[in-house]
Nucleic acid binder design. Structure first.
Length: 277
DNA sequence: AGCACA
């Protein structure tokens, strides 16, 4: 395998806030060029042209991560782009495609466990076909229909996500109770919002008026946009309130100011204040 | 843990 040094010249410009560089990936690791003759080896039947990577270091910026992976898989003829996301559900994972299943499988076996940014990579075959592959195999028109199907599927799963279903049931109930439509929006419970001036700054935030069905993950995703989030705690007995803890008061203040009155579901204003000491 | 396609 060719030496894959860091492609410093092709890297995106460094960002002053997070001064990270893609790892200089070298191939000193002997396990990566294991060209053994293997007449008894059978490629798994779930093999795919695309590998699904997990256990990637989540503190590495997504664009650097992509660049690094491109670099790391260069000798296996990786097909750009490498797909990685920074959102809560998808962080620490990536999709990397190759020209054929055999090459993907080779990469999978040889690169498995490679300690990228200190964490051993976990490689498996992707469950679904990547757009790049569909495009390559079926041409532009086949790709369009593939994309349409994918979009439909996505809308479906969005439609029957419990949070949305609950919100819609609520709307329906309100409309039924009031046929004039004057109060088509569900009546809001009266909330007591402690005036901030009576509360000392606190690394712990108190949330009120959360929409029905809000999950811990929903809140984590929203609050994790602001640095130093430590923990989100729901209150099982009171579904519309929660606590969110940051590492320090300053971080909590940033999040509080950004997210007070934020509408998680697009209509219910969440109240964010410091928790009482 | 978490299977997308900005």
């Amino acid at each position: 395998m060719a030496d894959v040094q860091s492609t410093a010249t092709t890297l995106p410009p460094s960002n002053s806030v997070e001064d990270q560089k893609p790892a200089a990936v070298t191939s000193e690791n002997g396990s990566m060029q294991d060209d053994t003759k293997e007449e008894e080896y059978k490629m798994p039947d779930n093999a795919s042209e695309t590998l699904y990577l997990q256990n990637l270091n989540e503190t590495v910026r997504v664009d650097y991560l992509k660049e690094t992976l491109l670099n790391l898989f260069k000798s296996y003829q990786v097909i750009p782009p490498v797909i990685a996301h920074g959102n809560l559900r998808m962080r620490g994972q990536a999709f990397v495609s190759f020209p054929d299943k055999e090459t993907a499988d080779k990469a999978r076996r040889e690169v498995a466990g490679f300690p990228l940014y200190g964490k051993p990579m976990q490689l498996s075959f992707a469950k679904t076909k990547s757009d790049v592959i569909v495009r390559k195999e079926e041409g532009e028109e086949g790709f369009e229909s593939h994309k349409k199907r994918r979009l439909e599927h996505k809308n479906e799963s969005r439609k029957n996500n419990p949070l949305r279903q609950k919100a819609q049931a609520k709307l329906k109930a309100a409309a039924a109770a009031d046929p004039t439509g004057a109060h088509a929006v569900a009546p809001r419970r009266t909330q007591i919002q402690m005036p901030d001036e009576y509360l000392l700054p606190n690394a712990l935030l108190f949330l009120q008026n959360l929409p029905d069905g809000t999950t811990k993950d929903d809140l984590h995703e929203v609050f994790n946009q602001y640095p130093n989030l430590l923990e989100v705690r729901l209150i099982p007995a009171k579904k519309d309130i929660a606590f969110v803890e940051y590492a320090d008061e300053e971080s909590a203040t940033v999040a509080k100011e950004a997210l007070h009155n934020f509408k998680i579901d697009g209509e219910t204003k969440m109240k964010v204040s410091y928790a009482k000491k």
